[in-house]
């Protein structure tokens, strides 16, 4: 294929998901606050790095050494169907408890029935050069040899792993077709209300066990590593089953 033909395609997918910024910076009278608290689990147990031995759905033992992911393009949908979009890219890291709390201080009052967010970084930010803050490449979440952010990383160790050092590495990324592994999470938030000048809390559980099980069970002896976008198709669909709402607490 010649470049003439390639360029428009490249530009198209780079521009495809330019985030919209309808979230106001300035605080208004009728705005309230929402805190989204992400909690990491393995099954029913709170996730513990390094020291606890877990088993995947094939009963293979392993420890988890790192678990982190990007949340971006957050939308909150009101019961009347209107949606509020929240700018920003958040890197949630099991090792840094503060990173798992996303504070949205200026959310319009109202009843909200759904939250939507992207696990990963939209294509626009994958194509426009150097980024900062949560997207700073020093965070270790950017593939240097095939430019693109790692959307989600789960690292570990298992005696069943056939990789050097019995390592497990599941790095999900890829924003270009046919390996577009950006996944939108949609969660119902029945009864969630935002009242002006108060703080509501939304608790979301991320169950790392689901990342390795349905619909695409991971066998450590066969796939100890997924570090290329073109090998991530299966596990990327497990991401859709990672999250659930566990708590809704409205400010009064």
């Amino acid at each position: 294929m010649r470049l003439r033909h390639l360029l428009p395609v490249t530009i198209l997918f780079c521009l495809f998901t330019v985030p919209s910024f309808s979230f106001r910076e300035t605080e208004r009278k009728k705005d309230g606050e929402l805190v989204i608290q992400f909690n990491h689990f393995f099954g029913d147990q709170e996730l513990v790095l390094d020291s606890v031995t877990y088993r995947n759905s094939l009963q293979q033992p392993f420890q988890i050494t790192a678990f982190k992911y990007y949340v971006s393009n957050i939308h909150l949908v009101k019961t009347d169907g209107k949606s509020v979009s929240v700018p920003g890219y958040f890197l949630l890291n099991e090792e840094e408890p503060d990173s798992r709390k996303i504070q949205l201080p200026n959310l319009p009052e109202g009843n909200y029935s759904r939250i939507e967010f992207l696990i990963g970084v939209d294509s626009a930010r994958n194509c426009s050069g150097i980024q900062k803050d949560a997207l700073d490449p020093a965070k270790g979440m950017l593939w240097a040899w095939n430019t693109g952010y790692i959307f989600l990383k789960l690292d570990g160790i298992s005696p069943q792993s056939t990789a050097p050092g019995h390592k497990l590495e599941y790095h999900i990324g890829g924003f270009k077709q046919p390996n577009n592994h950006l996944r939108t999470i949609r969660l119902e938030t029945p009864g969630l209300q935002i009242h002006s000048k108060t703080k509501s809390t939304l608790g979301i559980k991320a169950d790392a066990a689901n990342l390795l099980s349905a619909p695409h069970p991971i066998d450590f002896s066969k796939t100890p590593m997924v570090v290329d976008a073109d090998k991530a198709a299966g596990i990327a669909n497990n991401v859709l089953h990672l999250f659930s709402v566990t708590r809704i607490q409205n400010g009064l």
């Binding site: 490249t10 994958n126 426009s128 050069g129 150097i130 950017l142 040899w145 095939n146 430019t147």
Partner: peptide, 18 residues
């Protein structure tokens, strides 16, 4: 528009990380 013999890097600014 892209860098390296295989075109893996998509922007001059991020290139040095490789």
């Amino acid at each position: 528009p892209h860098f390296m013999w295989d075109g893996g890097v998509n922007h001059l600014d991020v290139f040095p990380i490789a």
